[in-house]
Amino acid sequence: MHIPENYLSPSTCAILDVAMIPIWGHAVKKVRETVPRDKMPLVGIAAAFCFLSMMFNIPLPGGTTGHAVCGTLIAILFGPWTACLAVSIALIIQAVFFGDGGILAIGANCFNMAFVLPLVGYAVYRAVSGRIEGRRGELVGAAVGSYLGLNAAALLAAIEFGIQPLLFSDASGAALYCPYPLSVSIPAMMLGHLTVAGIAEAGFTVGILAFLRNAAPSFGIETTEADSASAPVIGLVVALIAATPLGLLATGDAWGEWGLEDLAQMVGYEPAGLSSGWEWSALMPDYTVGVLPEWFGYLISAIIGVALLVIIFRLASGAMRPSVDFDA
């Protein structure tokens, strides 16, 4: 679901980039108000779950691949606005360091996966878990919320792709950016996400949530216990890092993430915006490390990505003022 560089027009990217600024501002304000300083490092670990889940490619119908996001998981644990910030930072790290998602399209990707996904997912989770009592209600709410949240994000991405040929084409009618119209992009994206990817998202979310509730009950904003990440949580992160090369088993590109040559073969021409567009040279493009085996590149990329997220959120906790409860 990561929109690559030059698949959206610069003006589309600019609109979504600008739209995200007040959203990020509001998210920062809400995080300062709701997340205690000593819980911020745990938000970094939750963001690491999100980063790692996006590295597991899942084969979808039609020969493409998809991935989970776990934005609803973070929303359940720390609130939807914290999830917005955490997923945004994970997406920015992916775009800047690994070339997964375009730099100009960061706003669009964050709008879909960091804003819409967790907010829709959390709203559905609250509605469903409120009707079913106990742990069962929480897990069912998490499953339904994460499924619907992911599909809402996929629908938006499909619309963003699909309107490009409608709005931006040359004199001969050839699309300048993404060449597939809404009648193609929506069924193509939604088929995979309504079936396999949505189920994977629900599976990841429920699995990790159930594990955390059992092994680390203080992992989340609802408890006031100040707890650093316990051994089981660190163990889960390490296990997920070790398992990331499994994402290589799914061959094929995600829908809308083709290279220029592959796209030209499919549509019969090179959209001018893609062939002459701006390119960013990532440090580890597509999670590879030069000539080293792909699985090694995936492992190193996962380690670097997770470590960066943990460090960023630990540093952020240092910048927050300690909250003092004068009524206690």
Partner: peptide
């Protein structure tokens, strides 16, 4: 990049003042 991974992992486990 391999060394960077080592450095970042070690840094992630430092106490916060030292990390800063």
């Amino acid at each position: 990049l391999v060394l960077l991974a080592f450095v970042l992992v070690r840094a992630a486990f430092l106490p916060r003042p030292a990390l800063a």
